[in-house]
Design a protein around this nucleic acid. Structure first.
Lengths: 114, 114
DNA sequence: TGAATACTTCAACACTTCATGAGTAGTTGA
DNA sequence: TCAACTACTCATGAAGTGTTGAAGTATTCA
């Protein structure tokens, strides 16, 4: 992954709805989920709004879509998500051991109370 | 790290100048770097623009600052960067093994030509 | 004290992003 | 063909982001 693609991906992820979308689709696995179902799962997100955010994620290559009859099925692209994390960790953060430690240790590393 | 903080951090990172800033400051280590030096290292970024972006990164807790005489020294906060990566990997991507694989394998995983 | 240095803050402007509702396009089954 | 269904696109306006240059604040030194 290059810088341009990483920036696109970061912009795409920097929105609450889209982060929820990714979380949902990653859990859904390769089968993916129809747009209508996604909208319901996210608490009845307006269709146009959902479409807007799905397009943003697809534009950043974080998800893919395929048609199935009258539905459009969306699925996460784990290799691109992994590529983004890899870029941040290796290219951007120089594989800094302090960052590695926080990242690999599960969960709450780095959330000291301040 | 919680969702709000992760969103702040993602927004902060989703800009070319700020990604360059982080890269530079991570490499610089705990000693950090004075604002003026940073501006020079980034090719003579206008002072007000640099200040704006540094404030954005500090607002997202990705960097810290301290005064030293007439300089302001900025340094990356690797534990917060690690916390963000950890959040994305564990909370958001459910520690999906496909993402783990791309993320930990160095570099170019997930950048297949399409 | 006054000039020089190092940064930050402010106001103005251009640009982008986002939410909303209305309209459009493709698929299915009667 | 028509109605129902599913999803996308477009126009609009509000809100947010980024750049610029000028002004302001704090520190140092002669």
């Amino acid at each position: 992954m290059d810088r341009e693609q990483a920036l696109k991906a970061l912009s795409a992820l920097a929105h609450a709805d889209r982060l929820d979308l990714i979380r949902l689709l990653v859990r859904q696995g390769p089968e993916g989920m129809a747009a209508g179902q996604i909208g319901q799962a996210l608490g009845g997100l307006a269709a146009s709004r959902l479409s807007f955010h799905l397009a943003a994620l697809e534009g950043a290559a974080l998800i893919s879509s395929r048609k199935a009859a009258r539905n459009v099925i969306y699925a996460a692209r784990p290799e691109v998500l992994g590529g983004l994390l890899s870029y941040l960790l290796h290219d951007c953060c120089s594989a800094d051991p302090r960052i590695f430690a926080c990242c690999l240790g599960h969960g709450e590393a780095g959330t000291d109370k301040t």
